[in-house]
Design a binder for these strands. Structure first.
Length: 579
DNA sequence: GCCGTTTTCGGCCCGACTGTTTTCAGTCG
């Protein structure tokens, strides 16, 4: 039993209760319960098993009993009974944008829709449009939603893949026949989404290694199985490939399977110009007049060096100028997680977070950070329990008081994630913003504005001298919601002109601003703040995804303000106001 | 189903947007 299973069951119960038209507050209780399980810092599965969940806010008697039953027996009678009332395929319909419980229930009740295939059929044959509450536009929207999902089918966010990647890597390394093992592919390059996981191992007994891999407990399906290459599927659908090579081949294979394709093509043509041919096994003389094979190649650094290049970290291997820079010796020294001294944009129970101010601060200290920025939602974000002026002022006072209890080695900064309203004005007046240590401005509504209007709206917010940084620039939710239309270069330009910092939102659903834009931002002199947008103690760990994304954007510690220590960060936060 | 300095019942998240309606229902944040 895993934490993920507990969360999944609670969320599915919520969906099923919605289909039944249950009391919305009961449904919300299950959702809240799922969030609490998700964000609880302790061993929640063990606690459920031992029936020690009493006292956790949001988990009452009913959920406590259900989680206990689930953790002990691996099953839940209540859930199984509920599930038997609807076809399994209905769950997939909730993933279609624009479809909610009421419409799904109507489709099921009136037309017997029980799967995506059924849904598509009734949309195309006109029967859906004839239902009460449905029309041509609804059907069009549903079909567009299905197409969106199909386009992203088989893709996973990096956080969905991360746990499997680490577990399987540990598993491979623990096999006695394994001499080396790494995860390669787009996951290693730190891409925001991945299609599969590529593992590479070195072994003198590849067949033995393969047989252990294909019969491992995490395998739900074996797709292909050979002596040096196998593919399996995990229960969540993620495909994992394992290649086994010799120890001598390992560095070349790791370069090859890490990619990207564009990077490899450039690397191979460079090798050709130097008299070699490069593939996943070796760097060999090309033709009869080729250069002799290099010796002493034990890892990727050696391969790069043999090609006359500085070492290129996996994140920048996208064929976007890294080879030229590696040749010229001008590669940036990429930021590392150890460089972080603090972080901004985090939530507490004052708005929609799950941990108190003091708990978040304690967690930040345990991570070794010197400061933590709190930026709860503003009042326009009703759904997130946004703070009004009075509550924000009370929170500022609470933060100032809490700071009195810390030594010189830790501090909480009082901020706000203030909503950028439809017209580009802010949800709080300037005099209140002036009381804060910093301000994150974010868009949370009216996503469908035309690009020009959205760009104007955001730039107007940026021009406010109290707006320290711009939150999640495009509002995207990876594989779920497209970014809204906005002219990113124009926003970067405006940030440069006004000394506004751009957030790299490290939440793995967002990773926004996208890594592809950071080199432009850096060139314009715009600085970055890596923010986890944490809604719980555990959420602070998302900083790891932000670091990977920053590295993909070629950022160094000098480009990211939260690498500055306490004592130097304050002047950066106040710089724009002083201009 | 959860919660409690309005405390064991009766509240609990409000508003924008869209599309289907002609005054509202559903979805989303």
């Amino acid at each position: 039993m895993t934490r993920e299973t507990l969360i999944d069951v609670l969320e599915k119960i919520a969906l099923l209760l919605e289909l039944k038209g249950e009391n919305p507050f009961k449904i919300r209780a299950y959702r809240t319960g799922a969030e609490v399980v998700q964000s609880h810092p302790g061993d929640i599965v063990g606690m459920a098993r031992e029936n020690q969940l009493e006292g956790i806010k949001g988990i009452g008697e009913a959920l406590r009993d259900k989680l206990h039953e689930l953790a002990v027996t691996g099953r839940l009678g209540f859930y199984e009974k509920l599930r038997a009332e609807f076809p399994e395929g209905l769950f997939a319909l909730f993933e279609v944008p624009g479809l909610g419980p009421k419409k799904i229930a109507a489709l099921h009740r009136e037309l017997g829709v029980g799967s995506l295939t059924d849904l598509k059929r009734v949309c195309e044959d006109g029967s859906a449009a004839a239902l009460s509450g449905f029309g041509e536009k609804t059907v069009t929207k549903i079909l567009e939603g299905i197409a969106f999902n199909e386009q992203h089918a088989g893709n996973f966010r990096s956080d969905e893949a991360a746990q499997a990647a680490h577990e399987i890597l540990e598993f491979l390394r623990a096999i006695p026949e394994t001499s080396r093992a790494e995860v390669a592919g787009s996951f290693r390059r730190g891409k925001e989404t991945v299609h599969d996981l590529d593992f590479l191992a070195a072994s003198r007994h590849p067949a033995a290694l393969m047989s252990v891999f294909t019969t491992a407990p995490f395998v739900s399906q074996v797709i292909a199985s050979g002596d040096t290459k196998s593919s399996i599927r995990l229960s969540n659908g993620l495909q994992c490939d394992l290649r086994v090579v010799s120890t001598a081949e390992f560095p070349y294979a790791l370069v090859y399977f890490t990619g990207s394709k564009e990077h490899n093509i450039q690397l191979r043509s460079r090798a050709l110009r130097m008299g070699w041919t490069l593939n996943e096994y070796h760097l060999a003389p090309h033709g009869s007049e080729g250069t002799p094979e290099p010796t002493g190649v034990h890892d990727e650094k050696d391969v790069h060096r043999a090609l006359g290049l500085e070492y290129m970290p996996p994140e920048i291997r996208e064929g976007m100028g890294e080879i030229e820079a590696a040749q010229a010796g001008t590669l940036p020294s990429l930021i590392a997680v150890e460089n972080l001294r603090g972080t901004f944009h985090n939530h507490t129970t004052a708005s929609d977070g799950h941990a108190s101010l003091a708990e978040m601060a304690e967690a930040a200290r345990e991570l070794g950070l010197q400061y933590l920025g709190i930026a709860d939602h503003s009042k326009a974000s009703f759904q997130a329990n946004g703070l009004d002026e009075d509550r924000l002022r009370a929170q500022i006072a609470e933060i100032r008081a809490l700071n009195e209890t810390y030594g010189k080695d830790f501090r909480i900064f009082a901020g706000s994630e203030v909503d950028i309203l439809r017209d580009g004005s802010l949800d709080f007046a300037d005099d209140l913003l002036a009381e804060l240590d910093y301000v994150v401005a974010s868009v949370h509504n009216s996503f469908t504005l035309p690009e020009a209007e959205m760009t104007k709206r955001i730039i107007r917010a940026i021009e406010n001298p109290h707006v320290t940084m711009l939150g999640h620039l495009t509002g995207r939710l990876l594989l779920k919601r497209d970014p809204y239309a906005v002219d990113i270069p124009a926003v970067i330009e405006a940030c440069a002109a006004t000394a506004t910092i751009i957030e790299l939102n490290a939440n793995p659903w967002r990773l926004d601003m996208d890594w592809r834009w950071w080199r432009l931002a850096k060139e314009k002199g715009v600085r970055c703040a890596i923010n986890p947008d944490a809604h719980s103690v555990r959420g602070l760990e998302d900083l790891w995804f932000g670091i990977r994304t920053a590295r993909k954007g070629w950022l160094t510690r000098d480009d990211v303000i939260n690498c500055l220590p306490l004592g130097r960060i304050e002047s950066v936060l106040g710089a724009k106001r002083r201009r």
